[in-house]
C-alpha cells in the first residue's frame, strides 16, 4: 500500500465525494418531492393524473437507473434540450427515486385511518389543511423506515453516474486505476469515501426510526 500516493490523491477523492454527495442529495430531495406529490395524487384519486402516477411508478421501479440516465443524457438533446451531466444525474436519480418514494409515502398515508381525515374535515379544516396537519405527520412516522432505506439506496445508486461522464467517486477511482494501475489504493479510497457518506445516513435513519416509533400512534 502506497500511503504517499493515497495522500497525494486524497483531495481528488474529496472533490469527487463532494460531487457524489451533492448530486445524490439534490436527486434524493427531488425524489422525495416527486414522491409526496405522487402519493397525494393517488390519495385524492385525481383523475388521469392518478393513472399517470401509477404508470410512472412501474416504469421507474422496473428499469435500471443506467438505462434511465442514457435516456436523459442521449435522448433529451435529440428533442432539442441541452443538458450538462450533473443535471442528467440529478434528474435520473429523481426519476428513479420518485417511484420508490411515491410507494413509501403511499403506504404511510394508507395506514392513516380515513376517520382521522373525516374528523379533521368535520372541524372545518380544508382538505389540504387536513392533509398537512393531520394525515402527513402520522403517515411520515409510518413511512420513515421505507423512506430512509430509499435514501441510502439512492445514494448508492449514484455510482452509475460515471456512465454519463460525471466525475464522481466511481469515475475517479476507475480513472486512477486506468492511469496508474493503483488498484488496491484506489478501491480502498473508494470504499472509504462511500462509507463516510453512507454510514452517517444509515445511523440517522436508525435514530429517526427509534424516535418516531416512540412518537407513534395509538388513538
Amino acid at each position: 500500500m502506497d500511503w504517499a500516493y493515497i495522500g497525494r490523491v486524497l483531495p481528488l477523492y474529496g472533490k469527487a465525494a463532494w460531487l457524489t454527495f451533492r448530486t445524490g442529495t439534490a436527486g434524493i430531495l427531488l425524489a422525495a418531492a416527486v414522491g409526496l406529490l405522487g402519493a397525494a395524487a393517488l390519495r385524492w384519486r385525481v383523475p388521469v393524473i392518478r393513472r399517470i402516477v401509477s404508470a410512472y411508478v412501474e416504469v421507474s421501479r422496473n428499469t435500471p437507473l443506467l438505462v434511465q440516465l442514457f435516456f436523459i443524457y442521449y435522448g433529451l438533446p435529440k428533442i432539442g434540450i441541452r443538458t450538462d451531466p450533473e443535471f442528467c444525474g440529478i434528474a435520473g436519480l429523481a426519476f428513479l427515486g420518485g417511484g420508490y418514494m411515491t410507494e413509501a409515502f403511499r403506504s404511510g398515508i394508507e395506514a392513516v385511518d380515513s376517520l382521522q381525515e373525516e374528523s379533521a374535515l368535520s372541524l372545518g379544516l380544508t382538505q389540504s389543511q387536513a392533509f398537512i396537519h393531520v394525515i402527513l405527520p402520522q403517515a411520515a412516522a409510518v413511512s420513515a423506515p421505507a423512506v430512509m432505506a430509499n435514501v441510502v439506496f439512492l445514494m448508492k445508486e449514484t455510482s452509475v453516474f460515471s456512465a454519463v461522464s460525471l466525475m464522481d467517486l466511481m469515475f475517479t477511482a476507475k480513472d486512477q486505476i486506468g492511469l496508474y494501475y493503483r488498484t488496491a489504493e484506489s478501491l480502498l479510497l473508494l470504499v472509504g469515501a462511500y462509507l463516510m457518506i453512507l454510514l452517517p445516513l444509515s445511523m440517522l435513519g436508525t435514530f429517526l426510526e427509534r424516535r418516531l416509533r416512540h412518537a407513534g400512534s395509538g388513538t
Binding site: 376517520l115 382521522q116 373525516e118 374528523s119 379533521a120 374535515l121 368535520s122 372541524l123 372545518g124 396537519h133 393531520v134 405527520p137 402520522q138 412516522a141 412518537a215 407513534g216 400512534s217 395509538g218 388513538t219
Partner: peptide, 18 residues
C-alpha cells in the same frame, strides 16, 4: 366554513394521536 357550524363527536374519539 359550513362544517364549522356543525360539531361532530365520533364513537372512537378520533383525536389526532401525534
Amino acid at each position: 366554513e359550513m362544517r364549522r357550524k356543525v360539531g361532530m363527536v365520533f364513537q372512537n374519539y378520533e383525536l389526532f394521536p401525534h
